[in-house]
């Protein structure tokens, strides 16, 4: 049975992620440093805010090891928005480069500012680069709702599932083993976003 945990984060609208899963027929629970992660089959790391601030929060609560242990067990793990960025190797958001969780092979850097406004807010297209259980039934070239100023680039193609563009190409869906990440907000991307979350909730973590 799926038992989905949504990691409590210091900022932002966690309820939307819960609502999106609930309306899709699941009954997710919020988890924090006091929870037993072994109780859960799936973990979702949502995220709004500053990469370094969020990473500092995780360290304060000794959460990075809990997340890494969860992922190492092979159970499906999903990062959304900044939650996806945290899965990467590092981010340049903030004064110094901050280490991420290192679950996917990608680096997070600022989107270009020449001739465009940051943050990148609105509906933009995602092009799938390869198939993945989480993107099953979804059509190529659909639009999802983005809010971000930093984005992931991958040095190697392997973890890239979807790409989008705003001043430059960036990774909008990443996947490595049992870990996936969405740069956009599936919980705010209507039917297609809900389908992605449903696929994740039924995924066994195998590719």
């Amino acid at each position: 049975m799926e038992r989905i945990g949504i990691l409590r984060m210091p900022l932002g609208n966690l309820q939307s992620v819960w609502n999106a899963l609930y309306t899709s027929g699941f009954d997710p629970e919020f988890v924090d440093e006091h929870s037993n992660f072994d109780d859960f089959s799936h973990l979702i790391i949502p995220g709004v805010g500053h990469f370094k601030a969020v990473m500092d929060h995780l360290h304060d609560k000794d959460l990075p090891k809990r997340i890494l242990d969860f992922a190492a067990s092979g159970r499906p793990t999903l990062g959304i928005c900044v939650g996806m960025q945290l899965l990467g190797l590092s981010s340049t958001e903030g004064d110094v480069e901050t280490q991420g969780l290192g679950l996917v092979n990608g680096m997070v850097t600022r989107l270009p500012t020449e001739g465009q406004v940051l943050p990148h807010v609105g509906w933009s297209t995602v092009e799938f680069k390869r198939s993945h259980p989480v993107t099953e039934q979804l059509k190529q070239g659909r639009d999802y709702y983005f809010v971000h100023s930093y984005a992931m680039t991958a040095e190697i193609e392997d973890p890239v599932i979807g790409v989008s563009s705003y001043g430059r190409d960036f990774v909008s869906i990443v996947g490595q083993d049992n870990v996936v990440g969405f740069q956009f907000h599936p919980e705010k991307s209507q039917a297609n976003g809900l389908q992605l979350l449903t696929n994740f909730a039924y995924w066994d973590g195998k590719c």
Binding site: N13, Q15, S16, N19, T23, K188, Q190
Partner: peptide, 30 residues
Amino acid sequence: VSKVSFMPLAIGGGIASSHDAAALIRNGAD
């Protein structure tokens, strides 16, 4: 509304402080 609407939601009318704004965002406004 945020239980039935899975798109960005903008809310206003009578916001007097950043506490008001934060309360609306906590309750589901984007």
